[in-house]
């Protein structure tokens, strides 16, 4: 498993596809976490199941946790859930790449 992260539209999806042409790329992982929350799943357990079911996948996700803590409880839970889920993916991943302005920085 590999993980590509970045702020909105920082080029993480393009980079993930470019560097892993033959892999299954799971884009917008943050939206997958949102759906999991909606289904009532615990975010870490959700991430563990993704790691188990798709160990060779490339996960692409927006960084969404670097803002003022939202007043809305649902938005607050969403941001934290993405963080918790990504900690699991990052620990499982053989590499983690953070994309800034289209440039990937390998942080693991």
């Amino acid at each position: 498993m590999k993980l590509y992260i970045g702020g909105a539209y920082q080029g993480q999806t393009e980079l993930a596809v470019q560097e892993n042409p033959d892999a299954e790329v799971l884009t917008d992982f943050h939206e997958m976490v949102r759906e999991a929350l909606r289904r009532g799943e615990e975010p870490r357990a959700f991430a563990v199941s993704i790691c188990e079911v798709k160990p060779d996948a490339v996960v692409v996700c927006n960084e969404v946790g670097a803002g003022v803590v939202p007043i809305d409880a649902g938005e607050r839970a969403f941001r934290e859930a993405v963080g918790r889920a990504l900690c699991v993916v990052a620990q499982n991943a053989e590499s983690v790449t953070r994309c800034v302005c289209g440039i990937g920085v390998r942080i693991k």
């Binding site: 960084e63 969404v64 946790g65 670097a66 803002g67 803590v69 607050r76 941001r79 934290e80 859930a81 993405v82 963080g83 918790r84 990504l86 900690c87």
Partner: peptide, 8 residues
């Protein structure tokens, strides 16, 4: 430092 839920 770090964002929400990042493991700080």
């Amino acid at each position: 430092t770090g964002g929400s839920g990042c493991g700080k």
